[in-house]
Protein backbone atom coordinates (compact mmCIF):
# COMPACT_ATOMS: atom_id res chain seq x y z
CA UNK A 1 0.00 0.00 0.00
CA UNK A 2 2.78 2.38 0.93
CA UNK A 3 4.40 1.49 -2.34
CA UNK A 4 1.27 2.50 -4.25
CA UNK A 5 1.05 5.78 -2.41
CA UNK A 6 4.67 6.67 -2.96
CA UNK A 7 4.42 5.73 -6.61
CA UNK A 8 1.38 7.86 -7.16
CA UNK A 9 1.78 10.99 -5.15
CA UNK A 10 4.80 12.47 -6.80
CA UNK A 11 5.16 15.91 -8.34
CA UNK A 12 4.68 14.36 -11.78
CA UNK A 13 1.27 13.11 -10.77
CA UNK A 14 0.01 16.59 -9.90
CA UNK A 15 1.58 18.08 -13.01
CA UNK A 16 -0.31 15.47 -15.01
CA UNK A 17 -3.59 16.41 -13.31
CA UNK A 18 -3.23 20.02 -14.40
CA UNK A 19 -2.25 18.95 -17.91
CA UNK A 20 -5.20 16.58 -18.25
CA UNK A 21 -7.63 19.09 -16.73
CA UNK A 22 -6.81 21.88 -19.20
CA UNK A 23 -9.02 20.79 -22.15
CA UNK A 24 -11.84 19.92 -19.74
CA UNK A 25 -11.65 23.42 -18.26
CA UNK A 26 -11.84 25.12 -21.67
CA UNK A 27 -14.71 23.02 -22.98
CA UNK A 28 -16.66 22.99 -19.71
CA UNK A 29 -16.49 26.76 -19.33
CA UNK A 30 -17.52 26.98 -22.99
CA UNK A 31 -20.53 24.76 -22.43
CA UNK A 32 -21.35 26.84 -19.37
CA UNK A 33 -21.68 30.04 -21.43
CA UNK A 34 -24.07 28.33 -23.83
CA UNK A 35 -26.17 26.77 -21.10
CA UNK A 36 -26.39 29.93 -19.01
CA UNK A 37 -27.89 31.63 -22.06
CA UNK A 38 -30.46 28.84 -22.31
CA UNK A 39 -28.97 26.57 -24.98
CA UNK A 40 -27.67 23.07 -24.28
CA UNK A 41 -24.84 22.72 -26.79
CA UNK A 42 -24.63 19.01 -27.50
CA UNK A 43 -22.52 19.84 -30.51
CA UNK A 44 -19.56 19.89 -28.09
CA UNK A 45 -18.19 16.45 -28.90
CA UNK A 46 -18.14 17.11 -32.64
CA UNK A 47 -16.99 20.71 -32.33
CA UNK A 48 -13.99 19.57 -30.28
CA UNK A 49 -13.23 16.95 -32.94
CA UNK A 50 -13.51 19.44 -35.82
CA UNK A 51 -11.46 22.02 -33.90
CA UNK A 52 -8.79 19.40 -33.21
CA UNK A 53 -8.65 18.59 -36.92
CA UNK A 54 -8.53 22.14 -38.31
CA UNK A 55 -6.15 23.20 -35.55
CA UNK A 56 -3.85 20.31 -36.33
CA UNK A 57 -3.91 20.85 -40.10
CA UNK A 58 -3.26 24.57 -39.78
CA UNK A 59 -0.38 24.01 -37.39
CA UNK A 60 0.98 21.28 -39.66
CA UNK A 61 1.12 23.48 -42.75
CA UNK A 62 1.99 26.84 -41.18
CA UNK A 63 4.25 25.42 -38.44
CA UNK A 64 2.55 27.89 -36.16
CA UNK A 65 0.76 26.37 -33.20
CA UNK A 66 -0.97 29.66 -32.42
CA UNK A 67 -2.42 29.90 -35.93
CA UNK A 68 -3.68 26.38 -35.32
CA UNK A 69 -5.37 27.48 -32.11
CA UNK A 70 -6.93 30.39 -33.99
CA UNK A 71 -8.21 28.06 -36.72
CA UNK A 72 -9.71 25.74 -34.10
CA UNK A 73 -11.43 28.67 -32.42
CA UNK A 74 -12.90 29.91 -35.67
CA UNK A 75 -14.07 26.40 -36.56
CA UNK A 76 -15.80 26.09 -33.22
CA UNK A 77 -17.43 29.50 -33.58
CA UNK A 78 -18.70 28.62 -37.04
CA UNK A 79 -20.28 25.34 -35.96
CA UNK A 80 -21.71 26.99 -32.83
CA UNK A 81 -23.24 29.69 -35.02
CA UNK A 82 -24.90 26.94 -37.07
CA UNK A 83 -26.17 25.48 -33.80
CA UNK A 84 -27.53 28.95 -33.02
CA UNK A 85 -29.25 29.15 -36.38
CA UNK A 86 -31.05 25.84 -35.69
CA UNK A 87 -31.94 26.32 -32.05
CA UNK A 88 -32.21 30.09 -31.65
CA UNK A 89 -33.35 31.40 -35.02
CA UNK A 90 -35.45 28.38 -35.95
CA UNK A 91 -36.29 27.25 -32.42
CA UNK A 92 -35.63 23.56 -33.16
CA UNK A 93 -35.09 20.87 -30.53
CA UNK A 94 -31.77 21.55 -28.81
CA UNK A 95 -31.19 17.87 -28.12
CA UNK A 96 -31.56 16.68 -31.68
CA UNK A 97 -29.87 19.75 -33.20
CA UNK A 98 -26.88 19.23 -30.93
CA UNK A 99 -26.56 15.59 -31.96
CA UNK A 100 -26.84 16.77 -35.56
CA UNK A 101 -24.04 19.32 -35.09
CA UNK A 102 -21.87 16.64 -33.48
CA UNK A 103 -22.48 14.21 -36.34
CA UNK A 104 -21.89 16.88 -38.95
CA UNK A 105 -18.72 18.25 -37.33
CA UNK A 106 -17.29 14.78 -36.78
CA UNK A 107 -18.08 13.86 -40.38
CA UNK A 108 -16.40 17.06 -41.60
CA UNK A 109 -13.34 16.44 -39.45
CA UNK A 110 -12.80 12.91 -40.78
CA UNK A 111 -13.70 13.79 -44.37
CA UNK A 112 -11.38 16.79 -44.61
CA UNK A 113 -8.57 15.00 -42.80
CA UNK A 114 -8.68 12.29 -45.48
CA UNK A 115 -8.80 14.87 -48.27
CA UNK A 116 -5.82 16.75 -46.85
CA UNK A 117 -3.65 13.88 -45.64
CA UNK A 118 -4.94 10.85 -47.52
CA UNK A 119 -4.15 7.55 -45.83
CA UNK A 120 -0.50 7.95 -44.85
CA UNK A 121 1.41 4.97 -43.51
CA UNK A 122 2.91 7.04 -40.72
CA UNK A 123 0.74 9.46 -38.78
CA UNK A 124 1.56 13.08 -39.68
CA UNK A 125 2.59 14.90 -36.54
CA UNK A 126 3.52 18.36 -35.32
CA UNK A 127 5.91 19.77 -32.76
CA UNK A 128 3.75 20.05 -29.67
CA UNK A 129 3.59 22.95 -27.25
CA UNK A 130 6.36 22.74 -24.67
CA UNK A 131 6.01 23.83 -21.04
CA UNK A 132 7.01 27.40 -20.33
CA UNK A 133 8.24 27.95 -16.80
CA UNK A 134 7.24 31.18 -15.12
CA UNK A 135 10.36 32.74 -13.58
CA UNK A 136 10.61 32.79 -9.76
CA UNK A 137 7.22 31.11 -9.29
CA UNK A 138 8.39 27.88 -10.87
CA UNK A 139 11.07 27.53 -8.21
CA UNK A 140 8.58 27.26 -5.37
CA UNK A 141 8.90 23.69 -4.12
CA UNK A 142 6.01 21.40 -5.11
CA UNK A 143 3.64 24.14 -6.26
CA UNK A 144 6.13 25.57 -8.75
CA UNK A 145 6.56 22.59 -11.06
CA UNK A 146 2.89 21.63 -10.75
CA UNK A 147 1.30 25.00 -11.47
CA UNK A 148 4.00 27.12 -13.10
CA UNK A 149 5.76 24.80 -15.48
CA UNK A 150 2.92 24.17 -17.85
CA UNK A 151 2.16 25.16 -21.42
CA UNK A 152 0.84 28.63 -22.17
CA UNK A 153 -2.54 27.11 -22.98
CA UNK A 154 -2.84 25.85 -19.43
CA UNK A 155 -2.15 29.34 -18.07
CA UNK A 156 -4.88 30.58 -20.40
CA UNK A 157 -7.22 27.95 -18.96
CA UNK A 158 -6.36 29.22 -15.46
CA UNK A 159 -7.32 32.70 -16.65
CA UNK A 160 -10.53 31.63 -18.37
CA UNK A 161 -12.20 30.58 -15.11
CA UNK A 162 -12.00 33.91 -13.22
CA UNK A 163 -12.68 35.74 -16.45
CA UNK A 164 -15.85 33.72 -16.96
CA UNK A 165 -16.89 34.33 -13.37
CA UNK A 166 -16.26 38.05 -13.79
CA UNK A 167 -18.12 38.28 -17.11
CA UNK A 168 -21.10 36.28 -15.86
CA UNK A 169 -21.55 37.83 -12.43
CA UNK A 170 -19.95 41.30 -12.47
CA UNK A 171 -20.89 42.78 -15.83
CA UNK A 172 -24.23 43.97 -17.26
CA UNK A 173 -23.57 41.66 -20.20
CA UNK A 174 -23.33 38.68 -17.86
CA UNK A 175 -26.52 39.68 -16.11
CA UNK A 176 -28.29 39.84 -19.46
CA UNK A 177 -26.91 36.45 -20.48
CA UNK A 178 -28.07 34.84 -17.25
CA UNK A 179 -31.48 36.52 -17.40
CA UNK A 180 -31.96 35.25 -20.94
CA UNK A 181 -31.25 31.77 -19.62
CA UNK A 182 -33.56 32.09 -16.66
CA UNK A 183 -36.41 34.26 -17.83
CA UNK A 184 -36.19 35.24 -21.50
CA UNK A 185 -39.54 37.03 -21.47
CA UNK A 186 -38.42 39.34 -18.69
CA UNK A 187 -35.17 40.00 -20.53
CA UNK A 188 -37.12 40.71 -23.70
CA UNK A 189 -39.41 43.18 -21.92
CA UNK A 190 -36.33 44.93 -20.56
CA UNK A 191 -35.15 45.43 -24.13
CA UNK A 192 -32.49 42.69 -24.17
CA UNK A 193 -32.34 40.74 -27.42
CA UNK A 194 -32.77 37.11 -26.41
CA UNK A 195 -31.47 35.73 -29.67
CA UNK A 196 -28.42 38.02 -29.74
CA UNK A 197 -27.44 36.93 -26.22
CA UNK A 198 -27.94 33.25 -27.04
CA UNK A 199 -25.88 33.54 -30.19
CA UNK A 200 -23.11 35.20 -28.17
CA UNK A 201 -23.22 32.50 -25.51
CA UNK A 202 -23.04 29.81 -28.18
CA UNK A 203 -20.23 31.42 -30.17
CA UNK A 204 -18.12 31.81 -27.03
CA UNK A 205 -18.83 28.16 -26.25
CA UNK A 206 -17.74 27.13 -29.73
CA UNK A 207 -14.48 29.08 -29.50
CA UNK A 208 -13.56 27.47 -26.17
CA UNK A 209 -14.55 23.99 -27.36
CA UNK A 210 -12.38 24.48 -30.43
CA UNK A 211 -9.39 25.37 -28.23
CA UNK A 212 -10.08 22.31 -26.07
CA UNK A 213 -9.97 20.05 -29.11
CA UNK A 214 -6.83 21.71 -30.42
CA UNK A 215 -5.13 21.34 -27.03
CA UNK A 216 -5.55 17.58 -27.21
CA UNK A 217 -3.68 17.36 -30.53
CA UNK A 218 -1.16 20.09 -29.77
CA UNK A 219 -0.13 19.16 -26.24
CA UNK A 220 -1.30 15.68 -25.38
CA UNK A 221 -0.99 13.70 -28.62
CA UNK A 222 0.82 15.90 -31.22
CA UNK A 223 -1.06 14.07 -33.96
CA UNK A 224 -4.67 13.87 -35.05
CA UNK A 225 -6.40 10.52 -34.64
CA UNK A 226 -10.06 9.62 -35.09
CA UNK A 227 -10.28 8.71 -31.41
CA UNK A 228 -8.77 11.96 -30.15
CA UNK A 229 -11.91 13.19 -28.35
CA UNK A 230 -13.46 9.81 -27.44
CA UNK A 231 -16.28 11.09 -25.25
CA UNK A 232 -14.45 13.98 -23.54
CA UNK A 233 -17.09 16.39 -24.81
CA UNK A 234 -19.91 14.42 -23.22
CA UNK A 235 -18.01 14.39 -19.95
CA UNK A 236 -17.93 18.20 -20.05
CA UNK A 237 -21.73 18.24 -20.35
CA UNK A 238 -21.84 16.25 -17.12
CA UNK A 239 -19.20 18.52 -15.55
CA UNK A 240 -21.43 21.55 -16.02
CA UNK A 241 -24.20 19.73 -14.19
CA UNK A 242 -21.72 18.64 -11.53
CA UNK A 243 -20.54 22.24 -11.18
CA UNK A 244 -24.13 23.43 -10.88
CA UNK A 245 -23.69 25.89 -13.72
CA UNK A 246 -21.02 27.89 -11.91
CA UNK A 247 -17.54 28.50 -13.38
CA UNK A 248 -15.52 27.82 -10.22
CA UNK A 249 -17.39 24.65 -9.32
CA UNK A 250 -17.25 23.40 -12.90
CA UNK A 251 -13.50 24.00 -13.04
CA UNK A 252 -13.12 22.21 -9.71
CA UNK A 253 -15.08 19.34 -11.21
CA UNK A 254 -12.70 19.28 -14.16
CA UNK A 255 -9.74 19.04 -11.77
CA UNK A 256 -11.38 16.22 -9.86
CA UNK A 257 -11.96 14.37 -13.10
CA UNK A 258 -8.42 14.92 -14.20
CA UNK A 259 -7.24 13.51 -10.87
CA UNK A 260 -9.26 10.32 -11.40
CA UNK A 261 -7.88 10.08 -14.92
CA UNK A 262 -4.27 10.62 -13.82
CA UNK A 263 -4.77 8.07 -11.07
CA UNK A 264 -6.09 5.45 -13.47
CA UNK A 265 -3.16 6.01 -15.83
CA UNK A 266 -0.74 5.42 -12.97
CA UNK A 267 -2.56 2.43 -11.55
CA UNK A 268 -2.67 0.96 -15.02
CA UNK A 269 1.05 1.51 -15.50
CA UNK A 270 2.09 0.32 -12.05
CA UNK A 271 0.23 -3.00 -12.44
CA UNK A 272 -0.04 -3.20 -8.68
CA UNK A 273 -3.75 -3.65 -8.94
CA UNK A 274 -4.66 -6.31 -11.45
CA UNK A 275 -7.88 -5.09 -12.99
CA UNK A 276 -8.88 -4.74 -16.63
CA UNK A 277 -7.76 -1.26 -17.73
CA UNK A 278 -11.24 -0.61 -19.11
CA UNK A 279 -12.49 -0.28 -15.53
CA UNK A 280 -10.31 2.81 -15.24
CA UNK A 281 -11.40 4.20 -18.60
CA UNK A 282 -14.98 3.75 -17.45
CA UNK A 283 -14.51 5.66 -14.20
CA UNK A 284 -14.97 9.22 -15.47
CA UNK A 285 -18.18 8.22 -17.24
CA UNK A 286 -19.54 6.48 -14.16
CA UNK A 287 -18.62 9.48 -12.05
CA UNK A 288 -20.31 11.80 -14.54
CA UNK A 289 -23.49 9.74 -14.25
CA UNK A 290 -23.60 10.54 -10.57
CA UNK A 291 -23.82 14.27 -11.14
CA UNK A 292 -27.47 14.01 -10.31
CA UNK A 293 -28.51 17.26 -8.74
CA UNK A 294 -30.07 19.47 -11.36
CA UNK A 295 -30.28 23.22 -10.94
CA UNK A 296 -30.35 24.11 -14.60
CA UNK A 297 -31.14 27.59 -15.92
CA UNK A 298 -34.93 27.74 -15.99
CA UNK A 299 -35.20 28.42 -19.72
CA UNK A 300 -32.67 25.79 -20.78
CA UNK A 301 -33.96 23.76 -23.74
CA UNK A 302 -36.92 26.09 -24.30
CA UNK A 303 -36.88 27.97 -27.59
CA UNK A 304 -37.89 31.62 -27.32
CA UNK A 305 -40.56 33.06 -29.53
CA UNK A 306 -41.74 36.56 -28.84
CA UNK A 307 -45.38 36.01 -29.72
CA UNK A 308 -45.83 32.85 -27.62
CA UNK A 309 -46.12 33.42 -23.94
Amino acid sequence: MEEIISQIFQVGFFTAIIRIATPFVFATIGELFAERSGVLNLGIEGIMMFGAMTGFSTAYFTSSLWLGILAAMLTGMLMAALMGFLTVSLGLSQHVSGIGITMLSTGFAFFFYRIIFGQPSTLPNIKAFTPVGIPVLKDIPWIGPVLFEQTTLTYLAFAVVPLAAFLLYKTPWGLNLRTVGENPHAADSAGVSVSAMRYQGLIISGALMGIAGAYLVMVQFNAFTFGVISGRGWICIALVVFGQWGPWKSAAGALLFAMIDALQLRLQASSIIDLPYQIFLMMPFVRAMMAVEMRAPAALLIPFRKEER
Binding site: L92, I101, L104, G107, F111
Partner: peptide, 15 residues
Protein backbone atom coordinates in the same frame (compact mmCIF):
# COMPACT_ATOMS: atom_id res chain seq x y z
CA UNK B 1 -16.52 9.57 -44.44
CA UNK B 2 -18.86 11.24 -46.91
CA UNK B 3 -21.38 8.79 -45.43
CA UNK B 4 -20.93 10.41 -42.00
CA UNK B 5 -21.36 13.90 -43.43
CA UNK B 6 -24.50 12.74 -45.25
CA UNK B 7 -25.89 11.41 -41.97
CA UNK B 8 -25.25 14.65 -40.11
CA UNK B 9 -26.55 16.82 -42.94
CA UNK B 10 -29.67 14.69 -43.32
CA UNK B 11 -30.44 15.07 -39.63
CA UNK B 12 -30.04 18.85 -39.79
CA UNK B 13 -32.02 19.30 -43.03
CA UNK B 14 -34.78 17.02 -41.74
CA UNK B 15 -35.00 19.06 -38.55
Amino acid sequence: FLADVIQGTALVTML
